[in-house]
Design a protein around this nucleic acid. Sequence first.
RNA 1: UCCCCUGUAGCUCAGCUGGCAGAGCAAGUGGCUGUUAACCACUGGGUCCGGUGUUCGAACCACCGCGGGGGAGCCA
Length: 466
Amino acid sequence: MALLPTVKQLLAMEPEGQDVTVRGWVRTKRETKQSVFIEINDGSCLSNIQAVVDALLVKEEAVKNTLLRVSTGASVEVHGALVPSPAKGQKAEVSVRTIELIGEAPADRYPLQKKAHSLEFLRELAHLRVRTNTFGAVARVRNAMAFAIHRFFQERGFYYVHTPIITTSDAEGAGAMFQVTTLDLEALAKSGGPVEYDKDFFGKKAYLTVSGQLNVETYCQALSRVYTFGPTFRAENSNTTRHLAEFWMIEPEVAFAGLADNIALATEFIQFLVSTALTDCAEDIAFFDQRIQPGLRESLEKVAQTPFTHMTYTDAIRELETSHAEFEFKPYWGCDLQSEHEKFITEKVVRGPVVVTDYPKEIKAFYMKQNSDGKTVAAMDVLVPRFGEIIGGSEREWRLELLEKRIEELGLAKEAYGWYLDLRRFGSTPHSGFGLGFERLLMFVTGMSNIRDVIPYPRAARQAEF
RNA sequence: UCCCCUGUAGCUCAGCUGGCAGAGCAAGUGGCUGUUAACCACUGGGUCCGGUGUUCGAACCACCGCGGGGGAGCCA
């Protein structure tokens, strides 16, 4: 199939009266005595292309009847000449010779109007909201970032690993899990009998994954540099602007890498993605800067250029303790950093992204490498202004005895970690990795403030429409 | 799961101390102008989230339920 030039491509051309065809959806129609102006958008870029129907043409009965039904949301195909625009506002426009209505969108029923709508209202129209400037821009940036993530890793010798979505391990240690079953729950409830998991599809309890990390570590111990990028599921009943029940996560894992390597990789990664967004999505970022988050572009440029501040957890606690700021939760060594603490450090102390390392082992996961002080682990969180944690990672505990001891201390079922412990039994190596929440990255890059607005169809507690 | 706010026209909201249901935008019609968040005039448009109660009288007060938003915790 020969593809026609998109609106984006048409707008990049020099207008010399050449024949063009535009297919897309009508954003607005403005009528004057002389002409009818139709703004057409095909999603290829933020900008619309203006199609102008001259008065002589408008007088033709067939054209007049068509134009009556050309309303906001309708799909059209126009043929005409791409000409320089005599008016301000656009360089080029299409001087229309023929216009065809492909699919109408009756104004009394089409829910999107040619006016600004609230994000809350649009959330109820997830199937149509991508037709708006904001959600079209989010979709394009999301695409660009997904592509850039692969490019970043591929250019650095990382292999993309597809870790499983379904797992029978409830030991991934990252949160509440969704159970997966083919058992007839209604029949089971009626029977009142016990649940026979040996008769379930996998012959045992199964879940949706909460993290690909443990699985990707196994590939790391053979391919050296690997990453996962896929959907992840958490059954937490959390109702916030930063959490989803289904979200996408990027998890790189590097063999023979220590915490410092991990920090360097995470920093380079974020700066690469931010730079890519600024160059490849310039028009969309300018839109977000203007309409969604004033100052966005400048702050992204700063993030792309400035080395990230690094402080240990102990330093961070000291900053908080000596700040004289009023906190709802009084900070002390050993406490987990609360949202207000993270915000204070990124927004008031550092005024930019910050890498916090070496947390108390009690507040971090079992697999993190224990430091020689006996109190902390080689953990690394990247915190950013506006919403806190965007990356969580660590050097992994690669010494069998220490890992087994930690599992016992935490009262975890050692049997469940058999294959994971094998990595430490056979050819173990130091290795490090981190998890980046894709949607949180998108919030950071676009300035959108609700995570439900950076994924096409958000899933959260009591929310799985569309 | 907890705390706070909120639900009135298609959308965003006002509606005072309980007393006739309102505005802007959108839509329709007409006018005007190479228009561009178009402009001007007119018109149509309501289960005041649902239920129960208090009252002569409820959009407004009380209780129950449902929906939406924000914050906290969990984390990415």
